[in-house]
Nucleic acid binder design. Sequence first.
DNA 1: GTCTATAGCATGATAGAC
DNA 2: GTCTATCATGCTATAGAC
Lengths: 226, 226
Amino acid sequence: MSDTKTRLLDAAEALFADHGIAATSLRDITTQAEANLAAVNYHFGGKDGLLTAVFGRRLRPVNQERLELLDAFESAAGVSPVPLDQILYANLAPPFRMLDASGESGQRFMRIVARINADPASSIHQAFLRHFDEIRVRFLEALAKALPELDADEVERRFHYSLAAMFHTFCWGPQIACLCAQPHDHRERVFTSLIEYGVAGLRAPSDGVDLDELRGLERAIKGVPA
Amino acid sequence: MSDTKTRLLDAAEALFADHGIAATSLRDITTQAEANLAAVNYHFGGKDGLLTAVFGRRLRPVNQERLELLDAFESAAGVSPVPLDQILYANLAPPFRMLDASGESGQRFMRIVARINADPASSIHQAFLRHFDEIRVRFLEALAKALPELDADEVERRFHYSLAAMFHTFCWGPQIACLCAQPHDHRERVFTSLIEYGVAGLRAPSDGVDLDELRGLERAIKGVPA
DNA sequence: GTCTATAGCATGATAGAC
DNA sequence: GTCTATCATGCTATAGAC
């Protein structure tokens, strides 16, 4: 039998992911973990602390691996920029590897992460973001080097688009029937798809779309005079 | 002075967006709306019903406009597929227009939407999804027609990637300092950027990335023998 | 129909015994 | 480190005033 702390983390991870964070009470968690209600407060200082510990436990190794991968690709590239597919691979491979290794519980965890990510007003959000401080800086540097024709703002926006697709996929995957059907084969396809989409998006010409032209077309179609 | 129902909706929208849904109590809402606590239950049946009404009120006209825009572009295209930038424009222009028209409260609203979207386990999620049933079908059809070389699964995945970027931007925009600085000019840039990224991503060649090659590279770099 | 006052029950947090 | 008891607060429901 594992110790109370671990049992609480496991129970919280499962319940937060399946029923949502707000909908899960400390009593649900302590009951499933066969622990006392007050144990949560003692070990983690409260519900927020427990949640922080839940994602910290898994996020640390995943993000560590991301940085190591990026390091490796950068060393291999020397003075040249790291190719975009390698940058995206360094960001995506670690969480996908965790999905393969941890099975059901890994999927659950990714759903929690995606949920916290989408709620900037939540109280644990800052603790969550701190896990990504170094990631953000390092990956933005690598992207900026690989995309010298874009200004820094645009690089950051596009980086966020690629993150959004990843979070959305982890959060929605099981329900879009893209990640669940044939677990492993499908995951491979989704992994590839995320990189393909991201590489193409990051490389998009920055003057490829003329908003005024689209607006003009809209007006013309709708029969508005001017 | 507006009626109680409207005041409750306005207060709830502001508080849900600023402090999060779970963190906002009915008492906070009724206090700010200068209404009685039980009014929420009477008019909306509870907190969930209130939330449903909050996003329904704004989502209906926005989604209506999306469909009308897509209709218009499809009529103009005749038998040809609608160009990708027009499809994405039809999806993005209505919410951006709402942002310009409704100012602060519109921004708040988009943050609520993004949050609900990221929490599939929440109890209102189904009511939320129903608003997008028709959108999903119509836009997927248009995309499939414009991207005949992709299989249906891949079209759906890429459609979701483009949605993810949109939600993420609306949710995070103010904090990434992309949407806030010079409100209108910046928004124009972000709008354009979303379309550029999306068009390029949707058009990505579906065999552009070789996962095994990337994995092989990783192994080689890390010095693993086989 | 519309709103108010209030009661019932569940939750998160804490104090203090062991 | 663990557990019991308890408190303040939150959501829901309902009885009844207007």
